[in-house]
C-alpha cells in the first residue's frame, strides 16, 4: 500500500453536437496537446456485473461489480453499490468463476473504458471511450492532481484546469468526496476512483436505456 498523495476526479463529457464519440475524443486530445500536455501511454478500466442467482431471503439481491484498472494491474476491486468493497488480487476473478452457480455474470453488462493518458505538470489526465456491448457509449475524463489528498483544498485549482480544455463540461465536486467527513481521498486502494467510474458507467447505461441520441 502506498501513501495517499493525490486527488482524482472522473467525469462524463457529452458528445459534441453533430460529432461522433471518436471525433469528440480527438477534440479533447487536441485541446490537451495545445495546452502542452504530453501523451503518456494508455489506460483501461473495466467492470463486470454479477447478480446472485438464488437468495434464501427472497429479497431482491444487490448487484456485485468486479472492476479492474490498468493503473493497479495486480488488483481487482469488488463492490456492492453503496455497500462494502473489497480489494483483492487477480485470483478473485478465478474465484468468481468457481462461484458461478451463485453469482451469474450479466454478460451484456460488461463495460470497458479505454483511452490515452496525458501528463501536464502535476496533472494526469485520462480520456477514455466507454464501451458497452462493443459500441461506444460515451466519453470519460479522469483528472488526477498528484500533490494533494484533500479534494476540498485543490478542487478550485482542478476546476480551473478542467475549464481550460473541457469548457462548460466541468463537473461538480464528486459526491464520494462530499460524503466523507474527513474529506480525504484514498488513492492507495483506488476505491474513490473506481466508485466514480462505476457511477459514470451506470449513468451512461441509463442514458442508453432512456433512448438518448448518444452515438
Amino acid at each position: 500500500m502506498g501513501v495517499a498523495t493525490d486527488t482524482e476526479t472522473v467525469c462524463h463529457v457529452p458528445v459534441a453536437e453533430g460529432k461522433s464519440v471518436q471525433q469528440t475524443v480527438d477534440i479533447v486530445h487536441k485541446k490537451l496537446e495545445q495546452l502542452g500536455a504530453v501523451k503518456h501511454g494508455s489506460f483501461c478500466v473495466d467492470c463486470e456485473t454479477y447478480h446472485a442467482t438464488g437468495n434464501a431471503s427472497g429479497q431482491p439481491s444487490k448487484l456485485l461489480y468486479v472492476m479492474h484498472n490498468s493503473e493497479t494491474p495486480l488488483s481487482c476491486m469488488a463492490l456492492f453499490e453503496g455497500g462494502p468493497c473489497l480489494i483483492a488480487d487477480a485470483n478473485f476473478d478465478v474465484l468468481m468463476v468457481k462461484l458461478k452457480s451463485h453469482f451469474q455474470n450479466a454478460k451484456g453488462h460488461k463495460v470497458e473504458c479505454r483511452g490515452s493518458r496525458y501528463r501536464y505538470c502535476d496533472f494526469l489526465i485520462k480520456v477514455g471511450t466507454v464501451t458497452m456491448s462493443s459500441s461506444a457509449r460515451g466519453i470519460s475524463v479522469e483528472v488526477e492532481y498528484c500533490p494533494c489528498i484533500v479534494p476540498g483544498d485543490c478542487w478550485n485549482l482542478m476546476k480551473e484546469f478542467m475549464l481550460s480544455f473541457l469548457g462548460t463540461n466541468v463537473p461538480e465536486l464528486p459526491s464520494v468526496f462530499a460524503a466523507k467527513p474527513e474529506g480525504l481521498f484514498a488513492p492507495a486502494d483506488c476505491v474513490d476512483t473506481m466508485t466514480q467510474y462505476l457511477e459514470l458507467f451506470n449513468k451512461l447505461r441509463k442514458l442508453q436505456i432512456s433512448g438518448s441520441n448518444v452515438r
Binding site: 473495466d46 478473485f92 454478460k107 470497458e112 464501451t131
Partner: peptide, 15 residues
Amino acid sequence: EAPPVTVMPVTGGTI
C-alpha cells in the same frame, strides 16, 4: 465465452 468487448480485460489470476 469471449467477452462482448473488443479485447480481453486486464484480468489475471492463475486458473
